[in-house]
Design a protein around this nucleic acid. Structure first.
Length: 549
RNA sequence: GGCGGCGUAGCUCAGUCGGUGAGAGCGCUCGACUCAUAAUCGAGAGGUCGGCAGUUCGAGUCUGCCCGCCGCUACCA
């Protein structure tokens, strides 16, 4: 197999620290998927980057009295540090602040403008006459028409939770100056999404293997009708409008939702340039055999399952997503908990306290692929101690300890295999096949479960044949059983490797230096010297503060 | 309010096209084993599948209504 696989991962805002929800929602599943495909020999390109534009960044910059660029310069390296610490193996993790990204954005903008699907429209917007600025909805405050709350925002009432339009507010006022905002005409560029409704709908309907909530959501959105959507804003921070189209007046930029998704393409081009093969990106974007998978949270479904495909259709000659395996959310104490209870804890907090593979295991075993999933620190520790260490780590340790002690640190030489011996090896081979199928369907949690179940089968085999007794009562048989167990562990090591990339090479060297050789049970050579045996994972004792600590 | 998803054992979750007595992991109880990080293996207890009504020979699975949670609702992305 040698398929081109694009692994496109959501672009985090460079405006704050990421938490475990981000990791579980997008980055870890993307990495597991990418590592699997690399291992089976596919050409993987995994890209993302920090989103340098957008409201959260300008809000934070305003709060701190620094430039938005300073915010990005602070958080982008922190985010990159997470990926290094946890082995999230991007081929490129860039930002949206590059000239390359601007150029690609302009290219798509121009293509749509030429075909008439980006058009100029005039709209009325609130304007603060005192501050002399157009006001985003959330900068207009007033009294909620539904509940009477007097500090409702123009986009939503925080008291009753209803969605609002700024014109709904009673006695609207500007949050900047307190002045009464006036409605004033302003021109913006709009994307005419409706022009692509039929095409996107037909495409969505023929997609198979998509998650139910993703497909239904996207189709429902189309059935409700896709309105024209403004892609520029009255801002001074963002990708500029192409010069020939920058005719709407001062202080307008392309808004982040339009350009951020373009990052997948611009990052591929940037990667190709860095490689010194500037045309190489085409293999993932224009090769009809290429596949593309977009790992995002459920809040991002409309942008990846409807809007981005529409943008690509208008651009032409680029592949639409193969799948958008959007995850639900990880919740912490009902998602409403405070930082002190664990919600706001950064990935870095966990990365400093847990071995990376242990943390990856705990998160991968609760990936919210179907439902929101509740996760606590105690649950993470439980998964590591009761599952990872007890079943898999201990299996490796018990087998290699007996072997080292009785066979002079070498892989024993087996006699003829019995049916039981062959059966356990067959179970490992079947496990590899099944796990591969699950990973390709992006059912990563089930894949990991299957790997653990297979490890249990090997533990069962050991308990049934008791090699620790055979080594004295029937040494040939003992050698055979241990050889089988080592061969099984080698196969399991392959199955676990996309999930546990840090301990995968450690295990291979313990097993006598076997090579990585695709998604098959490796051959283990009798007589090979085993490496230094040590537990793959440490059990976590009570020295890590948990939710309540 | 509208749209979508979800609500299954103490906890975290599986249940494909409706069909033999509803599943897994962990926890719990009992037992086996003792090579191994007090790890492993086996057995058992534990569920009116959110509620009500309906379709059907038969529904966790389909339909309607209700309750609860999450997301979206186009100026957060």
């Amino acid at each position: 197999m040698n398929r081109p696989i694009l692994v496109a991962v959501a672009w985090p805002y460079a405006s704050g620290s990421l938490h475990l929800g981000h990791l579980a929602g997008a980055y870890l599943p993307a990495d597991i998927f990418a590592r699997y495909h690399r291992l089976i020999g596919n050409r993987v390109l995994m890209v993302s980057g920090s989103d340098g534009h957008g409201t959260p960044i300008t809000v934070r910059a305003d709060q701190e009295g620094v430039s938005p660029h300073e915010i990005v310069d602070r958080y982008h390296p922190e985010i990159v540090g997470y990926w290094d610490a946890l082995g999230i193996s991007f081929d490129l993790f860039t930002t949206t602040l590059t000239d390359n990204h601007r150029d690609v954005t302009w290219d798509i903008f121009r293509a749509h403008r030429e075909r008439g699907t980006i058009v100029e429209e005039e709209s009325l917007q609130f304007y603060d006459p005192q501050a002399q600025r157009f006001l985003p909805d959330r900068y207009v405050e007033g009294t909620c028409p539904h509940c009477g709350y007097d500090q409702a925002r123009g986009d939503q009432c925080d008291n009753c939770g209803r969605t609002l339009d700024p014109t709904d507010l009673i006695n609207p006022r500007s949050r900047l100056s307190g002045a009464s905002p006036i409605q004033r005409a302003t021109k913006h560029w709009f994307l005419r999404l409706a022009a692509f409704s039929d095409e996107v709908k037909a495409w969505l309907e023929e997609q198979e293997g998509w998650r139910k909530h993703v497909k239904n959501w996207a189709l429902g959105m189309i059935d409700e009708g896709l309105p024209d959507r403004a892609i520029t804003r009255d801002l001074n921070w963002g990708v500029p409008i192409p010069p020939e189209a920058d005719t709407l007046g001062e202080g307008k930029r392309i808004y982040v939702w339009f350009e951020a998704v373009i990052g997948y393409l611009s990052a591929a081009k940037e990667w190709a340039q860095i490689q010194g093969t500037p045309e190489a990106w085409r293999d993932w974007w224009q090769n009809p055999e290429a596949e593309s998978y977009y790992f995002v949270g459920k809040d991002n479904i409309p942008f990846h399952a409807v809007i981005w495909p529409a943008m690509l259709l208008g651009y032409g000659d680029h592949n639409l997503p193969t799948n958008v395996p959007a995850n639900q959310y990880v919740t912490f104490k009902g998602a409403k908990a405070s930082k002190s209870k664990g919600v706001g804890r950064s990935i870095g907090w966990y990365a400093e306290r847990f071995e990376p593979d242990a943390l990856r295991y705990a998160i991968a075993s609760v990936l919210p692929e179907q439902n929101d999933t509740e996760l606590t620190d105690d649950e993470i520790i439980r998964r590591i101690n009761e599952e990872l260490v007890a079943t898999w780590g201990n299996l490796v340790n018990r087998v290699l300890t007996i072997t080292t002690r009785n066979f002079d640190g070498r892989v024993p030489t087996p006699a003829a295999l019995t049916d039981d011996d062959q059966a356990v090896l067959d179970a490992v081979d079947r496990g590899l096949t099944e796990i591969a199928r699950l990973i390709e369907q992006v059912e990563l949690r089930a894949g990991l479960r299957m790997a653990m179940d297979t490890a249990t089968a090997v533990n069962v085999y050991l308990n049934a044949h008791e090699p620790w007794k055979l080594v004295t009562s029937d040494p040939d048989r003992g050698a055979t059983v241990l050889w089988v167990a080592i061969a099984a562990i080698a196969g399991l090591g392959v199955a676990f490797s996309p999930y546990l990339p840090f301990t995968a090479p450690t295990l291979r060297s313990m097993l006598g230096g076997i090579d990585e050789n695709g998604w098959v049970r490796p051959k283990v050579a009798a007589g090979a010297s085993l490496g230094q045996v040590a537990p793959l994972f440490q059990k976590i004792m009570n020295d890590i503060p948990t939710d309540d600590g």
